[in-house]
Amino acid sequence: MSSAGNFFTSKLDDAIGWARKFSIFQYPFVTACCGMEYMSTAAAHYDVDRFGAGFPRFSPRQADVLFVVGTISHKLAPVLKTVYDQMCEPKWVIAFGVCTCTGGFYDNYATVQGIDTIIPVDIYIPGCPPRPENVIDGLMKLQEKIQKNEQSRALYDPCSKIGRPDGIQGKCSTEGKIKHIEPAK
């Protein structure tokens, strides 16, 4: 037991990051048509198991990564938030498809305009729906993030005028957890 190659040196964080990024237990929160591309990515042809992410857990308590796949309506928003809160640290969130990123073309009364107004998002995968290659690209970017032990904690403030392409500049009032946007006149 003396030959070289039987041990290696590393920082502990790097070793943990390396272990975590290749054992992603994901929770698929699938609500809409993006689920088809999700399934396509997960199935044998694109084989997400190559990245160690082939094991969906249908309990948030056993999951590391929350895949939010599909449109989130305001009625569903509390459910998504509860699922996120039930996940153990460390945890990451992937917004899969434009509906989860920004609301997509559902710019209406019913749809949450980006899930980052409810929960912090680590990786945005745009597309309507995104192709599996795009999903895998996002997954690899997430792996880089996990390797660096980075997690997003930022929530997008819907009252902020920055980044609103529709140019709605309404009055905002904040009452406790509730943020209100008045319509532009």
Binding site: P78, V79, D107, P183
Partner: peptide, 23 residues
């Protein structure tokens, strides 16, 4: 908690209601 009726023609199309919190 939703206020108003969304498919009425006088409901502003760009009106956004509060994000509702956890259950």
């Amino acid at each position: 908690q939703f206020e108003g009726h969304a498919l009425r023609k006088d409901y502003p199309f760009n009106k956004r209601q509060p994000l509702i919190g956890p259950i």
